[in-house]
Each structure stands twice: as C-alpha cells, then as structure tokens.
Design a protein around this nucleic acid. Structure first.
Length: 208
DNA sequence: GACCAGGCACATC
DNA sequence: GATGTGCATGGT
C-alpha cells in the first residue's frame, strides 16, 4: 500500500484531526518540547499551569527562573531536563529572532531546521513538529508511531535513520503542509487507538 | 505494581 | 557507528 492511499484510508476513517492542539504558535513550540516521550494529557496540565501563571509568552518564559519553570511543568515529566531544554530554546528565540515569531516564520525552512537542531534539547522530531505545526512549513514529522506502523506495513526498514524515514515520505507525497499536518496527526490517532504494543487491534484497524 | 507515553543527549565500547 | 542509560509524571 502506498503512503497516499494509507493517508486516504486514515482520513476516511478518522476525519480531520485539527492539529496542533494549541492556541498560538508559541504554545505549539512549547508543547513540542514538553511532549517528548510523554503522554499529551500530561503536557496539557503543564501548559495549563503555564497559562495560569501568565508565563506562556516568549518574553515571560525567557525571564522565569529554572526552579519556577520546572515546578510549573512538573506534570509533563522529566521536568528538570525539559526546563533546561525550554530555556535553551528561549535563549535561541531571543537571540536569533528577538522573540519575534512572525519574523522567524518568514525564514527559509532549511535554515530554520538547522537552527532548531543546533539547540540542545531539540532533536529532529521536535524540530519538524515546530516547523510544521507552529511555522506552517511543509515538512513530514516522524515519530515512534510512524516507525512502528510503517515498519509493520513493510514500507520502511528497521534500521532507517530519522532522516531516511522522513525523506521516504516527503519523496512519495505531494509536499503540501496541509497533507503533512493531517497525515502525522492521523498516524498518531491510529497509533494510539489501534497499535498499542500490548494490545494491538490490527483486525479492526482501518488499514487492515 | 508494571507498563507505557507525540525524544534527546551523553557515555561507553 | 552502534548500543545502553538517565530523565519522571500520570493514566491504564
């Protein structure tokens, strides 16, 4: 089955997913870091805490100290390391773009991806999530579900690097941000609902 | 109580 | 280059 057909089947089965769940591009960026290896529900609690503290803007978060930040994002897990990662990102956002996200969004994708990857704590998936869901760039986001599902369907190999998986999809699909946005969200939906490690439900999976 | 979740960096061989 | 490990909470 080709990627495009898989996409169509998932879209027919699940409909639009309305990703990323976040009110502003900055909130999406923060969420992308907080959700690393973490259930989204836990991230939502952390984001709610940040909002309640009035800290969910580039300027406020840039100024807040590590201890306070860690306490606010505690429910998202790995709170010490994530506080540090957020700080690294905020340092970059401030230094490179003076906290101006619109200006950042007007830059070239390749440049942005390189910059994001150079921030300690931002790896390929987080970078691509930010590019796609916060900055509206047409890039494909690869995550654990993507690997699990497409390995099972024999479209990728086990030893593919992140970039190899990413290229496979970007080369076999039209490079449209809307498509990449929906596809990744649908993959996560499928992964959560049907491909859990302990109780895979392939018999009722829309992909068969 | 074990297992899992929308990763990443770093140590060691 | 490959493989292993620490980071940590909340839901099932």
């Amino acid at each position: 089955m080709k990627p495009k057909l898989i996409y169509q089947k998932l879209y027919t089965a699940f409909g639009p997913q309305h990703w990323w769940p976040g009110e502003t591009p900055f909130e999406v960026m923060v969420g992308a870091i907080l959700t690393q290896n973490t259930n989204w529900q836990n991230v939502e609690i952390a984001i709610k805490n940040l909002k309640k503290a009035g800290a969910l803007t580039p300027d406020k978060l840039y100024k807040i100290n590590h201890k306070k930040l860690a306490a606010l994002i505690r429910p998202a897990g790995y709170f010490n390391i994530k506080a540090k990662r957020l700080k690294n990102f905020l340092e970059f956002l401030h230094g490179a773009y003076n906290n101006n996200i619109k200006r950042m969004a007007s830059c070239d994708v390749k440049l942005l991806r390189g910059q994001l990857l150079s921030v300690n704590g931002i790896g390929p998936e987080t970078a691509d999530s930010i590019l796609l869901y916060a900055l509206n760039k047409p890039v494909f986001v690869v995550d654990a579900y993507t690997r699990r599902i497409f390995l099972r369907h024999k479209l990728i190999k086990k030893d593919f690097t992140y970039d190899q998986v990413r290229e496979f999809f970007m080369d076999s699909l039209p490079r449209e941000k809307k498509l990449f946005n929906e596809f990744h969200a649908l993959i996560v939906k499928l992964g959560k609902d049907f491909c859990l490690k302990r109780k895979p439900r392939c018999e009722i999976c829309p992909l068969g």
